[in-house]
């Protein structure tokens, strides 16, 4: 059933207000098809009725099912190009300048929901390219963490399929990826900069030890948390950053109303949060 514009707006606003994730109008048909599955499963006939179900007492449970339908766990290298441009153009040179002044030549980056490692390794490739210039003689530490041990093991292994590597620019691919029978194997030169561990973002005792990062990424995870948990986790990220550090969320996410200490820094095609 085609979704009416006003129902689309109701449901999109609801998802945005509860999860902090925005559905652009260009993704209306995607949302429509996923809603159809949930409407079938719940026996609800109209979009408006489904919206009322989401708002009802058992709405939070249904919202979890809906979120599973509308988000995908898949990830790939060089996923968020505007973000990477912002890092290269502005954020990295800015952080390097500050740390050079302090004589502290070490860069620490955390991929806080690292899944199979694509985001962390993308950063490693980009920083490796700067070893001769901006980051000459710098120590680079990239940490990837995820709650799921299986994906942590995959990340450590560093072997990918064609889908994962499809966005890697050719120059990087030639240097850092070796193809073997349809498998794409990451170069040890990239792997050595990154460590992966299991971590639950709810685990306060472990979170307080994730210290002194310059940049933290946490894409497409906070959308599953309720507001109180989101605030708590984001406050950890805030504390774990250097005073000049940056925090990135996913491409259609928003931290509005979650933490009022971070400042938004805008760049073409996105924004980031500055401590």
């Amino acid at each position: 059933m085609a979704i009416a514009d006003k129902d689309f707006e109701l449901i999109r606003d609801f998802i945005y207000n509860i999860c902090g994730m925005f559905f652009h109008t260009t993704k209306k048909y995607f949302l429509e098809s996923r809603l159809a599955r949930r409407m079938d499963a719940t026996g609800v006939k109209t979009h408006l009725e489904y919206f009322q179900l989401l708002k009802s007492l058992r709405g939070s449970e249904e919202l979890k099912f809906l979120m599973d339908e509308i988000t995908t766990n898949e990830t790939y290298f060089f996923r968020n190009v505007p973000q990477l441009n912002a890092l290269e153009n502005k954020l990295l040179p800015e952080i390097v300048e500050i740390k050079n002044k302090m004589g502290f030549r070490k860069l620490r980056i955390w991929s806080a929901a690292s899944s199979s490692g694509e985001e962390a390794y993308t950063m490693a490739m980009i920083l490796l390219e700067k070893r001769a210039t901006l980051l000459k003689d710098w120590i680079i530490e990239i940490v990837g963490t995820d709650i799921n041990e299986t994906v942590v093991a995959q990340a450590k292994e560093g072997i990918y399929n064609a889908y994962s590597v499809r966005n890697i620019p050719d120059a990087y691919k030639r240097k850092y990826i070796k193809e073997d029978n349809g498998k794409f194997i990451l170069s040890p030169d990239v792997k050595k900069f990154v460590t992966f561990n299991k971590l639950n973002l709810y685990d306060d005792n472990k979170m307080i030890f994730m210290k002194t990062f310059d940049i933290i990424f946490c894409a497409n995870v906070l959308i599953y948390f309720d507001t109180a948990s989101k605030s708590k986790v984001v406050q950890h990220f805030y504390n774990n950053l250097q005073p000049y550090g940056y925090f990135f969320v996913g491409q259609s996410e928003s931290l509005h109303g979650v933490n009022d200490k971070f400042k938004t820094v805008h760049f073409p095609g996105g924004f980031t949060y500055k401590k």
Binding site: E253, H256, K263, V265, H266, F267, K274
Partner: peptide
């Protein structure tokens, strides 16, 4: 390639002085 930190923009300050509730604006949305 433009980048800006909203709270540091003079225009943002001018407009917030004019209308303090602007500080609560959902800039992301």
């Amino acid at each position: 390639w433009v980048s800006f930190n909203l709270v540091e923009e003079e225009a943002w300050q001018i407009l917030k002085n004019e209308s303090p509730k602007l500080a609560e604006m959902d800039v992301e949305r």
